[in-house]
Computed example of a mutant assay.
Amino acid sequence: MPEFDLDTKIKEMLTTARKVGIIPSVVDGVDSFAAAVGLYRMLSSLGKDASILYPGTVPAGLEGITEGVNVSTSMGNRSLVVSIDYSGTTASKVNYTTENDTLYFYLTPVNRDFDLSKVKTEITGPDFDLYITVGVQSPDDTGALKEQLSIEITKSKVLNIDNNSLNTRFGSVYLVDASMESLSLLMLNKAPKWGLVIDQRSAKALTTGISR
């Protein structure tokens, strides 16, 4: 994809995203994490609900750029929730059984004409509509997040940003620019083209990554 078209596509992804999970490499260390913080700051300033997903401690020396940053050590788990509105009934007991990998719930007692529309199901848990990996050559570089990320790659929008030619080009869209000496420099260079504003806090994070 030509560079102009790629930048336009990435800008569109960032603009339309509501909740963004940013995943820096646990292997790359300081530069990857600093670039992720810079991106987090810029997305947050646009009103995006952003989180950094990082299964480890913040790399040494970066404590000064992470104040107020939402860092989570996991991507979270999704759950299937079954709710039953039993108001107006005499139901008082709930039991369940399993058979042939099927779960059965029993709410008793209920009338024959119980309104089945009162039984609801929903999926709860992480609802990121965009994941952005930073400096992640492959899911192996995400440590404890590897298994979950491998699943999300096939089901969710994933923007893969890296400056290493060994990147495996996973994700919905990937930008791999090996000409950039650091990920933070790559982020600094591309941010304006993606409709992002580099403010004082994001600049501090990115320059910290560049200088390491």
Rank of each mutant, 00 (worst) to 15 (best):
T142H: 08
Q137S: 13
P139Q: 09
P109R: 00
L183R: 05
T124E: 03
V197N: 11
E152G: 00
E147Q: 12
A144F: 10
A191H: 01
T124P: 04
T142W: 14
V173S: 06
I198L: 14
R169M: 09
T154E: 03
L185I: 04
I132C: 02
D141W: 13
L183W: 02
G125H: 00
R169Y: 08
L185A: 09
D129L: 10
V134L: 08
S184H: 08
S117N: 07
S184F: 03
S150C: 01
S182F: 00
N160H: 15
I123H: 00
N164R: 07
I153A: 06
V158G: 04
S117I: 01
L149Q: 03
P139K: 03
A178T: 10
T124G: 00
K157D: 09
V197W: 07
L145R: 00
L186G: 01
D177M: 11
S184D: 07
P109N: 00
V176D: 10
N163Q: 14
K193D: 11
P126R: 03
Y174D: 10
D141Q: 14
T121R: 08
I198R: 04
L159Q: 09
T168L: 13
G125N: 00
G195I: 04
S165K: 15
D177P: 06
L166V: 13
N163R: 13
R112L: 12
I153L: 07
V173N: 12
L196S: 02
E147I: 06
N164C: 08
K118N: 14
G143V: 05
Q137E: 15
I198T: 06
K193Y: 11
V119I: 14
N163Y: 09
L175F: 13
V197D: 11
G171D: 02
F170A: 11
N160E: 14
N163K: 15
S172M: 05
I161F: 01
L166C: 07
K157Y: 10
S150R: 11
G135Y: 15
S184W: 03
K157Q: 14
D162K: 09
T133F: 00
N163P: 07
